[in-house]
């Protein structure tokens, strides 16, 4: 019985939550350093694409995972350049990178595979079985420990909460923000990679389908703290699972539950919790501000 619950519900929830958790942890680090990260969606998409491409050509998922991470990093550094150096509004620039990222996979897949936004299927022996799951757990533990106990965590928190205090203590605020952005790129890139080479076996068009925004919502519902953020991700992962499991199931009446109602559940939960359960959101004070 317990085993059945584990293999039917707990493990699948952990699996579908994996991309979310990676991305949300990245988003948490970035926003804690004082930079809004609504570009998670685009980073995940590009990460998923490059992971699939590299895994397909090397037949080794670890290379793919690395590629997804690097692709995410590159995109996030571009974002860092525009918001930290060129002083673009963070929400505007994040939206721009999301649009940009939507164009990249179809553009490249046309050149490489003559397809408008999908990659060839990767044989199952070149896919991950459970490694990303362990990697995810490790990221959660490391993030939590570093957030609370390390010098890095302390300084990142101050970069987002009171940058002037950090500056006057002799630490570069911009430096911490670059690091926060880079972390978000790498982690969200990893998250994207797990979409295409862990949960699926190829990249398909617009594969991230809003997960970057869900991850961002998880960060906010988790009050920018690592463990609560992960819990929020698991909740969202569970509704995603529910959505798959309830497809075509008749719960009451004669017709099956429309899948749309379950689809909108995580978004509805986010709004309701944000508006009615959390009180005024206590975001990092300097979030989104310009120096």
């Amino acid at each position: 019985m317990l085993e059945a619950v584990f293999s039917n519900w707990i493990l699948p929830t952990l699996r579908v939550s994996t991309p979310l958790i990676f991305a949300a942890l990245g988003g948490m680090w970035c926003e804690r350093s004082g930079v809004v990260q609504i570009g998670l969606e685009g980073i995940m998409l590009v990460g998923a694409f490059f992971a699939a491409v590299v895994t397909h050509s090397t037949q080794n998922p670890w290379w793919g995972l690395g590629a997804g991470m690097v692709a995410g990093l590159v995109l996030s550094l571009g974002y860092g350049l525009t918001v930290l150096k060129l002083k673009a509004n963070q929400i505007v620039a994040g939206t721009a990178f999301n649009l940009f990222a939507m164009g990249v996979p179809p553009f490249l897949s046309m050149i490489w595979y003559d397809s408008t936004g999908s990659t060839p299927v990767i044989p199952s022996e070149a896919l991950f079985r459970s490694a990303p799951l362990f990697l995810m757990v490790a990221s959660v533990v490391l993030s939590a420990v570093f957030y609370h106990r390390s010098k890095f965590g302390l300084r990142v928190r101050f970069a987002g909460e009171h940058p002037k205090a950090l500056e006057s203590a002799g630490i570069s605020v911009q430096g911490k923000r670059w690091q926060g952005i880079a972390l978000s790129g790498m982690l969200a890139g990893l998250g994207g990679a797990t979409l295409s080479i862990y949960l699926a076996s190829s990249f398909s068009r617009n594969m991230s389908s809003g997960r970057g925004f869900i991850a961002l919502a998880a960060v906010i519902l988790g009050k920018w703290l690592p463990i609560p953020t992960v819990v929020a991700c698991l909740l969202f992962g569970f509704t995603e699972l529910l959505q798959i499991r309830l497809q075509g199931v008749v719960l009451w009446g004669e017709r099956p539950v429309p899948v749309q109602w379950i689809q909108i559940l995580p978004y509805l939960i986010t709004i309701v919790v944000l508006a009615f359960a959390m009180g005024r959101t206590r975001a990092p004070k300097a979030l989104g501000g310009v120096e």
Partner: peptide, 21 residues
């Protein structure tokens, strides 16, 4: 080149206009 190029161009136009720096 496909119509998806517009996403790339739109993104770049936003960045071009938004990058006050």
């Amino acid at each position: 080149v496909t119509r998806d190029l517009t996403y790339i161009i739109q993104g770049l136009i936003i960045l071009g206009v938004a990058s006050d720096g």
